[in-house]
């Protein structure tokens, strides 16, 4: 028991230290090149965490989350433009509205897409993403079509420019993690995991599978939509192929797989490793198309060498070690999440 409490204390203090570092980062290293990487990394921590709530817990792989990302982006941009909001801190207050709009869209898409399972679901989500991209391009009167949509440019200068965005992304990532953690420990979360393991049996023992799946899908999409909104404001100019980008959708999936599907810390770890790596590759090899080849190689390496992800592999390693040493060790469980 004491050992367990010690481990728990260690975990809590670890989280506190990590969070303190995240909070202090802009002060520690205010140089824009670094904070730019930090903004994107924090963004992907949020995205991967949000994706994991659906993909990791229920096992329903959505490759269309980039659609919600772009939708949130466009919603915020259009809100700001039509309400005539000035640049500054106020636009951040409208991010939840973008989230709300994304939730409504996700409810409609999810209601439809979740009639299908497994492979068909994957493809239907891809189809919806391209549908949204096409709409953004064709509804020229509303979105500006291929000409794109501009956000107001904030007056902040120099080292400070990235900081508000960083904290906005940090806030959304924290919100996502809190929700993910809360779900993981609730009956609802158990129901989601049951769906992943065997949906028909889950239904048979009384899990309202349809409602549960839809809820997870909407929660996941809403977070992604809000993050997309902040992203749009950060880059200040968006166009359809740029925000509804399949690469964004696949990146969050890859991060979750690298870290560990269905775990809480896995998506964070995956994003912390992959996003800086991705930015570094793009920066150094972006001019030649070899950047894509290298990214693909990393990608293939991850999946073929670590199909279960880093966190589950580590947990298994620790448990095997515990089982071998000392009788106090608990029986090795098959639990995936730490």
């Amino acid at each position: 028991m004491r050992l367990l409490r010690q481990a728990n204390n260690l975990k809590v203090s670890g989280i506190v230290v990590l969070f303190a570092i995240a909070l202090a980062l802009p002060a520690i290293s205010p140089d824009p090149a670094t904070t730019n990487i930090a903004v994107f990394t924090m963004m992907y921590i949020g995205l991967a965490t949000a994706w994991n709530i659906m993909g990791g817990y229920t096992g329903y792989i959505s490759l269309g989350h980039a659609g919600f990302f772009g939708f949130g982006s466009y919603t915020l941009g259009l809100l700001l433009a039509h309400l005539g909001i000035k640049a500054g801190y106020t636009p951040f207050l409208f991010v939840p509205l973008a989230g709300l709009a994304t939730a409504v869209l996700a409810l409609a898409i999810g209601w439809f897409a979740l009639r299908t399972r497994a492979a068909t679901f994957v493809i239907v989500t891809i189809a919806f993403m391209f549908m949204l991209q096409l709409l953004a391009e064709n509804l020229v009167g509303l979105t500006g079509g291929g000409g794109g949509l501009s956000f107001p440019v904030p007056p902040w200068g120099g080292d400070y420019f990235n900081t508000p965005y960083y904290y906005a992304m940090l806030a959304l990532a924290t919100l996502g993690l809190a929700i993910s953690w809360r779900i993981r420990r609730s009956k609802f979360g158990l129901g989601l995991l049951a769906i992943r393991d065997d949906e028909d049996k889950a239904l048979a023992v009384g899990v309202p599978t349809r409602a549960f799946k839809l809820t997870a899908f909407v929660v996941s999409a809403t977070l992604v939509g809000m993050i997309g909104g902040v992203y749009g404001y950060y880059v200040t100019y968006i166009y359809p192929q740029f925000v509804v980008d399949p690469l964004i959708g696949i990146s969050m999936v890859l991060m979750v797989f690298l870290g560990g599907l269905g775990t809480i810390s896995g998506p964070v770890l995956g994003a912390l490793i992959l996003e800086p790596a991705q930015l570094w590759l793009a920066y150094n090899f972006g001019a030649s198309r070899l950047y894509l080849v290298m990214y693909a190689a990393v990608f293939l390496g991850v999946i073929l060498l670590l199909p279960r992800g880093i966190v589950p592999s580590l947990v298994e390693l620790v448990e095997r070690w515990r089982a071998r040493t000392g009788p106090s060790a608990s029986a090795p469980s098959k639990a995936v999440a730490p």
Binding site: L292, M294, F299
Partner: peptide, 17 residues
């Protein structure tokens, strides 16, 4: 099913590159 989507997507990126 899930992993194959990622693997073949990576192949597509590699070929594109």
């Amino acid at each position: 099913e899930a992993l194959s989507v990622l693997v073949t997507y990576a192949l597509a990126l590699g070929i594109e590159g």
